[in-house]
Structure formats: structure tokens, C-alpha cells
Design a protein around this nucleic acid. Structure first.
Lengths: 333, 333
DNA sequence: CTGTTAGCGCGTTCAG
DNA sequence: CTGAACGCGCTAACAG
């Protein structure tokens, strides 16, 4: 920058003004500085700039998701990016893979880089360790899962309501034995969806048979095995509510293997590509990960801009996408 | 940091040594510093640190992809992250959406943040504008597409070979009229796949009928319409080579609508989730986006570590995944 | 409209 | 093994 000033025959401050587009520099000088910048290939150093600037903003936000490679996370990431980049803010993202220690380490790395804001899908139930960061002025928003022990905004899907919608649809179709297949119960979203399932079963006057619920299904193979066992056992369900993406796919595979895909109803939570091209096409309760990300980013930027309202829970609704697998009726007795 | 030094009764330099894990501090002092750090909630400022440190490394790399939300890009991103994070390096990623101007703007933003390295899937064919950054010491690696006008490494898929494999499979099955459905011809990967198609057609002694080639198919709907037109027209193809993910899906939809899914063979380039659950299951030439990302990251970190060999082209092979749609025979005349 | 001075938080250099 | 001084690249606050 000193070199630029020298070459343009102006002071450091004038270069600074031109580079930052501050008003009050004569066109002649502006031009001289601009050409000097180009000639020397000068690039401003954002780090040094943030060091001195009031507020120390880095124009960078952090985004901690479960796994950047899964469609839910990546759609959410894209939405955050679409809010941030037009404001000149870049996004540092990373995957925590359900590992709370990794989450903390990544948070440390992000805080050391002085991100202005942080969007995270918490793994651990205790976010108290972020309290000092929050007080230091870092905007924080939780997405997909609520914040434990930390007063910040969160943006959540209507997990329980969506699950209840699924079960009500099946019950309305005449099903009485509706199975629940879901992920680890210590995951907030899984617990909520199970809660919605139980509530809807009760509302429909259906018995809560514990043998109809399978938990801890964290990948597609486990779900396939569980569905196989359930359907091959005594008094099998006539309909499945699968509470997660990969669980749905595992269940569909199981039904195929048993040749039951046109005889057992399925409603899944979370839509997936090609669900409409399978036969039968799979009925789902669709989440809107992009809306989740947009909303989280909007709240984050509002906080960064000084919004000082008390933290709130923001809710993004699910939509039931009716396709064939949800219309399958139970066998007549 | 000054506060920490004061509270621990040591000098600034000693705090610095402890924080950075440098050797040569007595255990007693180390402990005092550690507790002071915790009490005050001190977080090192990476920006300020990079400013003074020899080499000015920021422990951050940039990653510019087409669209972080698509499965190819996000698998690649995850792989880069998996190489970077264990080394304490964070990844700033962004989507360029095939927009060369946006690519340049994002590169500016990344360079201003002084990323140590840059992985990018170039949109424009001229990367000359990166020359000054390269000379300034930023490691640069191109992925999926080669670098034009810039002497840097690139990591590419065997596009032409994979396409040729697909066509050879279909030709070996007895097909003579094999259509090509692909993306915009100015995209490197699309051009390469088309080249492989033409070469394989020639090798199989099949005529190159230009009416059998559809280009500029950049989304699934366009591909569906093109396939519909091709199959409904005179002298239709008996097999389709679809040169991209979304194109394959569009073609599958078209075949469904015509009821031809079991009568016209399909081989797609790039695998996709559930391709094996469709009926017929879709034969594909699978790319390995994770391998692409790992390789690109490995090369990048080698360069950042001082590797000084001349830039090279690194190649990641495709694999033909034989499923039902590729085994469909042409109707006997 | 433009320049001068001071110092952001930290690592380096060199002297104890 | 420890500390003092200096400056990285830049901008805030004040002159001129």
C-alpha cells in the first residue's frame, strides 16, 4: 500500500480512501491511485484492515453443519451463501459429523478467525461454552436443532407437526398398525418426530404398540435390516412412517426385497431426489432446507446489524407431498 | 493478550509461546498462563497473528465450485475439507454458477483474505488474471476443468474415456443408433464427453449421424424435451448416452412418459443416488468426486509445503457401473 | 479535499 | 529460559 501511495504520489490515507470507496477524493487522484493499484497488482489485506477498523468486522461468517456432503446440509449451506455473498460476506463451512468435540474445536478455529457470525446445527445439548463468544459480540444462530444453555435464536422445522401429518394421512387411509422407524433418540429432530408420531397415533385412537417403533437407525442399511425384521415378524405393520431420509430409502429397499412395495404404505420425513420416479412414488413430508438456511442467515445478519430483540424460535413449516406410497390401503381383513 | 500477560505476571512473549505451543517455557509459567487464558476467555486473533508471522499464512483455503448444493460439488467439498481440517486449515467455499464474472469477484474476496491456497473449478477459459496471485505465492489447483493461460496443476476426470466406455458397451449390445444428449458445448467436460462419444462411434464403425446429437441441455427439463423429440421423431435411436447427471434424469422421465423405459437402452455419465432402485436400474459411468477433491487438496497442500515440480495434469478414472438399462437390446429388425 | 500520527494484536529479533 | 522493542498493513482521529 505504501508502494501504491508512492507511485501515485499521494499519502497512505488517500489510497485507503480510494480502495474503500470512501467519498471525498478528487477524480484526478482517484484515477492515479487506481492505475497505481493495477500496475502494482495491489490487493488489500482484509486481515490487517479488520485489525484496525472499528468493530473489527471480518466480513466472514462460520457455518457448522452435520455433513456438507448430504443434500439437506448442502441446500442449507447454499441458502446461507446466497444471503451472505451479495453483502460481501464469505462463508467458512465445516462438517461436525455428530461429534460434539469436533464441534467445539471447529468453533475455536472459527472464533480465532474472528467470524462476525456463526450459524450452527448443534450436536451437543450444551452450548454454554459459546457464552463468552456471544458476549464478545459474535452473532450466533442455531438451525435445525435448538440451542441448549445459550440465549440465541434458533430456526427449526415443524418436526412433530410434520410427523403427525404423516401418521394422520395413514390413519385416514384405514391403517391401524403404523410403524415408526427413526434415528437416534438423543437427536432433537428424531425425538420430535417420534413425539409427533405418538401424539397422532393417540389422536387417531390407535394403540401405541412399542414393538412398532425402531430407533437408532443412523444409516440406510440399519433401516433396511430393521424394516425387514419388522415386516417378517409376527403381526407386521401395514404402514411405515420413516422419520428420516436414509431411513426411508432403507425401508424402500426392504419392501422391494420382500416384494411388498405395492402392499405396505410408506410416508417418509424429508423429500429426496427421484422419490417421484420410484414405483410406487414415495409420499413424504418435505422439509425446506433452503428456507431454513435463508431464515437463519436473515436472522444472523439482523443480529449483526444490531437487532437487539430477545432471542426467538423461528419455525419453518413442512409440506406433505402426496404420492402413491401413502395411498396404499391396508389389506381388508 | 496483554491482560493475560498481566494476570499471569509474565511478558507478552511468554503468553505467545504458550498459546502457540512453542517449547522453552517452564511448566510453572505455562500453567499460570493457561489459567489466565481461561479466566479471561482469551482467544488468539488469527488475523493479527498472520500479519506478523513469517510467510503470513492464514491457515485458510478457498474453494470455488459450480454449485455447492449439487451432489458432485458437495462431495468434492467434503473431501477437500477432510484433507484441510485435520491440518487446522479451514475452507471458505462459494458457488460461481457458471458465471465467470462472479468467479473473478469471489477470487478477489478470497485473495483479500489472503487464503494460502485456492481450489477452483474454472468457468472462464482464461485464468490469466490469477497470474499475479500465483506469483505472490498463493497455491492454485484447478479441479474438474483445466486451467487456461495459467501454469497450475489440474485434477480431471477421464471424461472422454468414460464416454467411450459407455458407447462401446451399447455398441457391443448391438446398438447402431446411439444418441448423445449433453450440456453446453463450451463446457470442457461436456466437450470431452462428446469427443469420447464420437471416437467410440467411429471405432465401432457406426455412422456419425448429427441428428443423433443434442447439446445445450443444462437442466433436466430441457433434456426431457430433447429426448421426447428425438424418440418421437423419424428413425429414432435405440440407445441413449446421456452425458450428465440431470440430463440422465430428464431422459429417464421422457422414456417413462413414452412407456419405452424397458425398450430403449440408457447409459448415463455420473452416478446418482437411487439409480439402482429405478426400474430399470440405470447403468452409469461413475465419476468419483470425492477422489477428485482429495487429490486436488493433496496437490494443493504439497504446493503450499513448497513442492516445486512443474505443474501437471492429474487424472481420476471413471468406473462403468453396469445395471439393467445398459443391457437392453435393440429391437430385432 | 488531503496528509500526519498513533496503534489494532501479535510474532520476530535480539539482548539478557 | 525470559523479556523489550519494533513493525506487519491498515484505518480512526485529528489536523491542515
Amino acid at each position: 500500500m505504501r508502494d501504491v501511495a508512492l507511485r501515485a504520489g499521494v499519502s497512505l490515507k488517500t489510497v485507503s480512501r480510494v480502495v474503500n470507496g470512501e467519498p471525498g477524493v478528487s477524480p484526478a487522484l482517484t484515477d492515479r491511485v487506481r492505475t497505481a493499484v493495477d500496475d502494482l497488482g495491489f490487493r488489500p489485506n482484509a486481515g490487517a484492515s479488520a485489525l484496525r477498523r472499528a468493530g473489527g468486522r471480518t466480513a466472514t461468517v462460520g457455518l457448522l453443519l452435520q455433513d456438507v456432503a448430504n443434500p439437506f446440509s448442502s441446500a442449507l449451506q447454499r441458502a446461507v451463501e446466497d444471503v451472505a455473498v451479495p453483502r460481501g460476506v464469505l462463508v467458512i463451512s465445516a462438517s461436525v459429523d455428530g461429534n460434539a468435540d469436533r464441534e467445539r474445536e471447529l468453533v475455536q478455529l472459527l472464533c480465532a478467525r474472528r467470524v462476525d457470525g456463526l450459524v450452527l446445527a448443534p450436536t451437543g445439548s450444551d452450548l454454554g461454552y459459546l457464552e463468552s463468544e456471544r458476549r464478545a459480540g459474535t452473532a450466533i444462530v442455531c438451525v435445525d436443532r435448538p440451542a441448549g444453555n445459550l440465549a440465541v435464536d434458533s430456526v427449526l422445522t415443524t418436526n412433530a407437526e410434520g410427523a403427525a401429518d404423516a401418521v394422520h394421512l395413514l390413519a385416514a387411509g384405514g391403517h391401524r398398525r403404523i410403524a415408526y422407524l427413526g434415528d437416534r433418540r438423543d437427536i432433537f429432530t428424531a425425538a420430535e418426530r417420534h413425539r409427533g408420531y405418538r401424539r397422532a397415533m393417540a389422536e387417531a385412537g390407535l394403540p401405541a404398540d412399542p414393538r412398532l417403533a425402531c430407533h437408532e437407525l443412523s444409516h440406510s442399511d440399519a433401516a433396511e435390516a430393521a424394516a425387514l425384521a419388522l415386516l417378517g415378524g409376527p403381526d407386521p405393520p401395514t404402514a411405515l412412517f420413516t422419520a428420516q431420509n436414509l431411513v426411508t430409502i432403507g425401508a424402500v429397499r426392504a419392501l422391494r426385497r420382500l416384494g411388498l412395495q405395492h402392499h405396505v404404505a410408506v410416508v417418509g420425513f424429508d423429500d429426496f431426489l427421484l422419490a417421484d420416479l420410484l414405483s410406487p412414488a414415495v409420499t413424504v413430508v418435505a422439509q425446506d432446507p433452503a428456507a431454513l438456511g435463508r431464515r437463519a442467515a436473515a436472522v444472523l445478519f439482523a443480529r449483526m446489524a444490531g437487532d437487539d430483540l430477545p432471542p426467538a424460535v423461528h419455525v419453518v413449516p413442512t409440506v406433505l407431498v402426496a404420492r402413491e406410497s401413502g395411498r396404499i390401503r391396508p389389506p381388508s381383513p
